[in-house]
Computed example of a mutant assay.
Amino acid sequence: MPSDIPDESPCESPTDLTGLLARMRQAGQREESVSLDALLDSVGRRSFAPFLLLAGLITLAPILGDIPGVPTLMASLVVLSAVQLLAGRDHVWLPRWLLQRRIARERFVQATRWMERPAGWVDRLLKPRLTWLTRPPAHLPVALTCLLIGLAMPPMELVPFTATGAGLALTLFGLALLANDGLLALLGYALTGGTLGVVIASLV
Rank of each mutant, 00 (worst) to 15 (best):
T195N: 04
D181I: 12
A185I: 05
L86A: 11
A138P: 06
L86H: 08
L177G: 00
L94K: 04
P128S: 09
P160K: 03
M24I: 04
R124H: 13
D37P: 03
L57T: 08
R45G: 04
P68A: 07
L98V: 09
T162I: 09
T112V: 07
P118K: 11
A82W: 02
P155L: 11
M74E: 10
R113Y: 13
S13T: 13
L130T: 07
A38W: 03
L183Y: 08
E116Q: 14
S47L: 12
L177M: 09
A49L: 11
G88N: 10
A104D: 15
A152P: 05
T164M: 14
E8H: 07
E116I: 03
A179T: 03
L125R: 14
A143N: 03
G193K: 02
P6I: 12
D37M: 04
L99K: 12
D90W: 05
V204T: 12
G182K: 05
G167I: 08
D123P: 06
F48N: 09
E32G: 10
E157C: 07
P155T: 02
P128Q: 06
Q110I: 13
L184R: 01
P118C: 08
L64G: 02
P154S: 10
A190N: 02
A166S: 14
P155N: 05
P141T: 06
H91P: 01
L126W: 01
P71E: 04
N180K: 12
M153D: 08
K127I: 05
M115D: 13
I5R: 06
W114T: 13
A27G: 11
L40M: 07
L158G: 07
L36I: 15
P136Q: 12
G19Y: 09
D123F: 11
I63D: 07
G28K: 03
L39R: 14
R96V: 13
M74R: 13
A152V: 12
E12W: 13
P128M: 09
R89I: 01
I67Q: 11
V83C: 05
N180I: 01
G150V: 02
S3K: 03
R105I: 02
T59C: 12
L175G: 00
G44K: 03
L80W: 00
C146R: 00
C11S: 13
C146M: 04
M74L: 15
I200M: 10
V34M: 05
L21Y: 01
M153Y: 07
A111L: 13
P95D: 14
V79L: 10
L140D: 15
S35R: 14
N180D: 14
L57W: 00
D16K: 03
H139I: 15
P6N: 11
I103K: 00
L36C: 02
R135F: 06
I63Y: 05
D7W: 15
S33R: 09
R46C: 08
G167Y: 14
G69R: 10
L148Q: 15
L148H: 14
A163G: 02
G165Y: 00
L170S: 02
Y189W: 15
F173G: 01
A179M: 01
W132L: 06
A152K: 11
A111T: 10
L147S: 01
G193E: 10
F161E: 04
C11V: 10
P154D: 12
A143C: 06
P141D: 08
